[in-house]
Write a protein that binds this DNA or RNA. Structure first.
Lengths: 201, 201
DNA sequence: TGTACATCAGTGAACGCGCGTTCACTGATGTAC
DNA sequence: TGTACATCAGTGAACGCGCGTTCACTGATGTAC
């Protein structure tokens, strides 16, 4: 063989990394493969030596982006005492609001992923699951169903508030949305794990 | 003049209506003007007799879509006692989940609008404001700041949970997300209006 | 140690297609005679 | 009431461009002699 075995894998990984940023910055539909390849320092023709299709790349980028987010979440939750609050405050911070390309993929891509093929939607949910699980793990005591449900509710506020903050061009109003999101998430952390759902799954 | 004065206005309104549905169904970037015009029973060439640009149409569709949502919200809140709960339950119902083209524009377009020009983002927020105000108006007693903040938090859960439910291809898991969103929103309705934020806007 | 070779990661032109936008035109219409 | 006309909403071809995808190729590389 010509190049050493790792060479192509490294390139492939580089494409996935830059793509995961471009997709989060511009949206998947609005991001072109030529731009992604240029970001990786390559020309567009080589793309199909690494991936079957743009959709296949999308699935890889979801795994990559969530992998990083989940790891960062876990680390932050461990380092601080009352770790979940630290995670929530960072998620709804001006710096996360300002860097969607390095931030939570769900907050940028959820509505778009809902329109993608089932295979892609399954990858999205498979990656989202541990993130919700991580929230759940840091919740106060309560029935298992209630805690899982609470974690879903908490992540929903986080994601929703981040999106609204990003859509709001007035910095003061945007800050206020972040603060409201934090307040709501913290209320849910304390109250939601005790509340049992009306009907069971 | 040739056609009676109302004729063109009616056509224009028809374009806005079908566009607001297409944008909510496919996303703005993925929806083409030719498709919009075809939905309106026209050919694409006539578009610029009605609007300056696609972006101008986007702004019109936001006003149109939110106008309907806001009106529907207000009506539902009035008709039922404990109206806010009825609004939340409908927002997070399987039927709203399944019909994004007729549903809440914010839940489909928020991340995409965040990438649009400021003029468009301002229209989005101007239309979103009364919707949040409507939630606020139906909240229990509490300090004004806390109630506003609570309304933002409640809408964030609603929007976030709806998006997660739409991204989840497994119907049972998707239903569960809706239920979790309802539970979280109702907890916030009862507790959030009492909680004052750490720092003021 | 130096050269010839086989490999294959990456190049860049080309495919058909749909995009937003422009524009010369057509033809259905309400009005004026 | 019937005809000629002026208006202008809507048509459809064309603009340059970027999209995802394909493919014949090039040339840098690790290996064999």
């Amino acid at each position: 063989m010509r190049y050493d075995k790792a060479h192509k894998d490294i390139t492939r990984q580089r494409i996935i990394e830059v793509a995961s940023q471009r997709f989060r910055r511009d949206g998947i539909a609005a991001a072109g493969l030529a731009g992604v390849m240029a970001d990786a320092g390559l020309t567009h023709g080589g793309f199909y030596a690494h991936f079957d299709s743009k959709e296949a790349l999308v699935r890889e980028t979801l795994t990559e982006a969530f992998g990083r987010t989940n790891q960062e979440f876990a680390q932050r939750a461990e380092e601080h005492e009352g770790g979940l609050e630290a995670v929530i405050r960072h998620y709804l911070s001006p710096s996360h609001r300002g860097r969607s390309d390095k931030g939570c993929a769900a907050a940028v891509l959820a509505p778009e992923i809902a329109r993608h093929p089932n295979a892609t939607r399954r990858v999205f949910n498979a990656q989202l699951d541990p993130l919700i699980g991580l929230i759940e793990a840091h919740l106060p005591e309560g029935p298992e169903d209630a805690r899982r449900s609470a974690a879903i509710g908490i992540f929903s506020v986080m994601m929703g508030a981040l999106q609204l903050a990003r859509a709001q061009p007035d910095p003061l109003l945007s800050d206020r949305i972040l603060e409201s999101g934090i307040a709501a998430a913290l209320i849910l952390v304390h109250h939601a794990p005790k509340v049992v759902l009306d009907h069971n799954p």
